[in-house]
Write a protein that binds this DNA or RNA. Structure first.
Lengths: 238, 238
DNA sequence: AATCACAAACTGATGTACCAGTTTGAAATC
DNA sequence: GATTTCAAACTGGTACATCAGTTTGTGATT
C-alpha cells in the first residue's frame, strides 16, 4: 500500500502471515499462535498481536478471546457477497476504462488478453503451481483495467475483494471447467472500443461466469471433516 | 459489525476514537496520544495502540513512528477516489434494489425518500447540529437501499467509504447549495419501478451531484493555516 | 470399552517498563 | 529583535511478565 518498505515489526508480521495465508502455507482452518509466530519471526508477541488484529478486521483470520486464532473459513454467503462486491467494483472500473483509458492502455490490454487466453487454452490439466501462476496473471489482467482509471482507492478495493476470494477458493486444488477460447479477448475488445454501458455489461457477464461453480466448490471444501477440534466451540453464536 | 458487545479493551478504544472522530470531537489534524487516551479510557497503552493501528489501516488516522499520531487529513485525490468508489458500490446496490427488493422494501424506500426531501427542504440555514442530523438520515436512506440486497459485504463496504467522506467533509461547518426539491423522491421512484439499468443510471447521477462541490469545499478546508506544527514534517513524501 | 474428570499446557489480552527517535520551548548567541 | 542551539518532555514501538479462560491428553471410574 505504501512505497516505502515496512519498518514497523507489526507490519512485517502482517505481511508475513498474509503472504503465508495467500500462498497456501497456512490453509483455511490452520491454527495461529501469537507466541510461536513471535518466535519464528524473532519478535515479541505484541506486534504479532497487532498484525493478527488487522488480519481479523480484514476477515482473513478469526480469533476467539482466550481460545486461539485460526485462518478463517468463509461461509458460502460471504463468498457470494464478495462476488457481488467484485461485480460492483469491476463493472465500474470497466466503464471507466471504456471512457477514459489512453490509447496505450487499450493496446496493452488487448495484448494482455491475448496472452491470457493463450495461457488458459494451453493449460489443460497442468500442475497446481502452473495453474496458480496463470491465475495470478489473470488477476494482473483485471488490475490493469482498474489501474488505467488511476483511482487508487478503487484499485485497492478490488485487490482486497480478490484476495479474499483467491484465498477462500484457490488454496485447495480447485479445478474448474475450461473457459471459452476467446474469453478475455472478447472482453477486451468491448472495453477497448465499446461504450461505457457496453463495457459494464460485458464485465458483469465476465465476473458472474464462474461464480456458481466457485460457490459449489466451496461447499465441498467446507464439508471436509476434521477442520475444527472437539468442543462446542461456542463461537457459533445464535 | 458484530451483534455481541465488544469485550476486548482494544475494541472499546477503537469504538471510542472512531466515534470521536466521526462526530467532530477530534477534528482532522487533531493530535492523538496513546498514553493520554489510555489514561482517559482507564486502560494501558497497548490496547490503545492496537486500536490506533486499526484506524490507521482504515485511513482515518495517520501515525509517524516516533513523532505522533493525528486524525488524518485526506488529499483531494482521495476524496475524489472515494466518490468513485461510492459510485461503483451504490450504482450496483441500486441495480440490485430495482431487481430484487421486496414490495415492503419498496414501500419503505418511497416513504423514507419523502421524509428526507421534506427534511432537506425545511432545513434552510439550520444549525450545524440539525444539518448533521439530517445528513445522518440521508446516510440511512442510502443504507436502506444497500441493505435490501441482503449482501453484508456490500453494505459494510458502502458504509466504510461513506464514513471516510463524512469525516473528511462534514466535520467542518460545510455548507452546500440546496438540493432539488424532489431529489430523493425522484430517485426512489426510479429504483422502485424502473429497470436495473435505469436505477443504476439514476443513482450514478445522484452520487455525482455534489462531488465537485465537496471537493472544492475540501480544498478550502485543507488550505486553512495552523493545521500542522512547524518543521518539515518529512511525511509529505514526493 | 466407553465415559468422565481434571490438571497441565496453551491461548489471547493486558499492564508495566524501557528504548530510541521527534518535537518544542526557552536559553544562548548573534 | 531575530536566529540558533540544545536538553527536557513527549511520542510510538517493542519486550517481558502476568492473568484468566480454553483446550486437551491422561488416567481414574464405571
Amino acid at each position: 500500500m505504501s512505497i516505502v518498505a515496512e519498518t514497523r515489526l507489526a507490519g512485517k508480521a502482517y505481511e508475513w502471515v498474509r503472504a503465508a495465508i495467500l500462498d497456501g502455507r497456512l490453509p483455511p482452518g490452520a491454527p495461529l499462535s501469537r507466541r510461536k509466530l513471535a518466535d519464528e519471526l524473532g519478535m515479541s508477541a505484541v506486534p504479532v498481536g497487532d498484525a493478527i488484529g488487522r488480519l481479523e478486521a480484514e476477515g482473513l483470520v478469526e480469533s476467539r478471546p482466550r481460545a486461539g486464532t485460526r485462518v478463517r473459513i468463509a461461509s458460502a454467503d460471504e463468498i457470494h457477497g464478495n462476488y457481488v462486491l467484485r461485480e460492483a467494483l469491476e463493472t465500474h472500473s470497466a466503464r471507466l476504462f471504456a471512457e477514459f483509458a489512453t490509447a496505450a492502455d487499450r493496446r496493452r490490454l488487448t495484448a494482455a488478453a491475448s496472452r491470457l487466453d493463450v495461457a488458459y487454452n494451453a493449460l489443460g490439466a497442468g500442475s497446481p503451481e502452473r495453474r496458480a501462476r496463470v491465475e495470478r496473471t489473470h488477476i494482473d489482467f483485471h488490475m490493469m483495467i482498474a489501474r488505467a482509471a488511476g483511482v487508487e482507492v478503487l484499485t485497492s478495493a478490488i485487490e482486497r475483494s480478490r484476495v479474499l476470494l483467491f484465498n477462500w477458493v484457490f488454496t485447495g486444488t480447485a479445478e474448474f471447467a475450461p473457459m471459452p477460447e476467446r474469453w478475455h479477448r472478447d472482453l477486451a475488445e468491448v472495453l477497448v472500443s465499446g461504450t461505457a454501458d457496453e463495457a459494464g455489461s460485458a464485465m458483469r457477464v465476465h465476473v458472474r461466469f464462474r461464480m456458481e461453480e466457485v460457490i459449489a466448490r466451496h461447499r465441498e471444501l467446507a464439508a471436509e471433516p476434521g477442520r475444527m477440534a472437539r468442543g462446542p466451540q461456542r463461537g457459533t453464536d445464535k
